[in-house]
């Protein structure tokens, strides 16, 4: 009797998860298979003529893996890292300040609201805003000139460093608040006893930070690092709008996804496919790292629950 009942309920389990899996199958899995399939074909438009699809084996993979690939990979990495390093440093500092009762931070809620705000802003509109603000005749130059800091207008987007720094600044502003709040939650998850014990033992704030807080929140730091890396790999909106899809000057802020976007529009399906497969492999590896971490946490929690009982 009981057995039949549980079988009839199993049916409901499948019904509940069916929409998710059907949608995933249609809109993600089939496209993935199709993407992989076209990566082996020569299929592009040249003028008004469409060439292919002809099977060409691994030709697309070889042709995509040229000097351009490494340049764009390097650009993507540079744009990500110069935004990420200040982001994680500032977030760690702010998070440890917010939870430190001795500092008596006033208006904590206000600061949190303000620093999280840029995260919700449309990246494309934000990039367009920066483009107008930092243009040679824009308000930033006008303010700098009024303050007497510069002789002539600075062409921020005329140099590779300038453009990259602007992209990094936007990414920093958009993400440091989010990271701060996440790290804060992680630090507050640490038992208060540990901090008290440290304080009784005469730990300075610096020692407490480096020898207690940091090691204890390492899992979430790694998680932040990897999810940010995945986000960095997908960097598109900000450099695309800021440079109007050109990655100027001289393609120094041209990212991998901007390239993919261009190949899809050309259209050059074969090479777009090969590039997608490379990106898929890299993100797949990163995904498995995230999976392992999330899963290990669950195991740890279960073990702890057992110990408690």
């Amino acid at each position: 009797m009981k057995k039949t009942k549980s079988i009839s309920r199993a049916k409901w389990g499948y019904i509940c998860i069916l929409p998710f899996f059907v949608t995933y199958f249609i809109f993600s899995f089939l496209p993935l298979v199709d993407t992989i399939r076209y990566s082996f074909y020569e299929y592009y438009r040249s003028g008004i003529r469409t060439i292919g699809p002809n099977f060409v084996g691994f030709d697309n993979y070889i042709s995509v893996m040229g000097p351009d690939f490494f340049t764009y990979l390097k650009n993507t990495f540079i744009l990500w890292i110069i935004g990420f390093v200040p982001q994680i440093v500032i977030a760690l500092l702010l998070a440890s300040w917010f939870v430190d009762a001795r500092l008596k931070i006033r208006g904590e809620q206000f600061f949190k609201v303000v620093i999280y705000l840029p995260n919700l802003i449309m990246a494309s509109a934000f990039a367009m805003l920066f483009f107008t603000l930092f243009s040679t005749s824009g308000p930033v130059n006008s303010i700098l000139a009024n303050l007497g800091l510069v002789d002539g207008p600075i062409d921020f987007m005329g140099t590779p460093t300038g453009t990259r720094l602007l992209v990094a600044l936007m990414n920093f502003l958009m993400w440091f608040g989010n990271t701060t709040i996440m790290l804060m939650a992680a630090i507050m998850g640490i038992s208060q006893d540990v901090f008290e014990a440290a304080s009784i033992d005469g730990c300075t704030p610096r020692q407490t930070f480096f020898h207690i807080t940091l090691p204890l929140i390492r899992p979430i730091l790694t998680y932040t690092l990897i999810t940010s890396l995945i986000g960095g790999l997908q960097m598109f909106d900000v450099p695309q709008i800021l440079t109007n899809g050109q990655g100027n000057p001289n393609r120094t802020s041209y990212t991998l996804i901007m390239w993919l976007n261009n190949l899809l529009r050309a259209p050059d399906y074969g090479r777009a496919g090969a590039l997608s497969v490379y990106l898929f492999v890299v993100s797949g590896i990163l995904c498995i790292m995230v999976y392992r971490m999330v899963n290990r946490d669950d195991e740890k929690k279960i073990r702890r629950r057992f110990n408690r009982n």
Partner: peptide, 16 residues
């Protein structure tokens, strides 16, 4: 697939 970027299947998605 928790953090899999949607961009990697964009080609197939567009054709679909």
């Amino acid at each position: 697939i928790l953090v899999m970027p949607t961009q990697v299947t964009a080609l197939g998605f567009l054709r679909l």
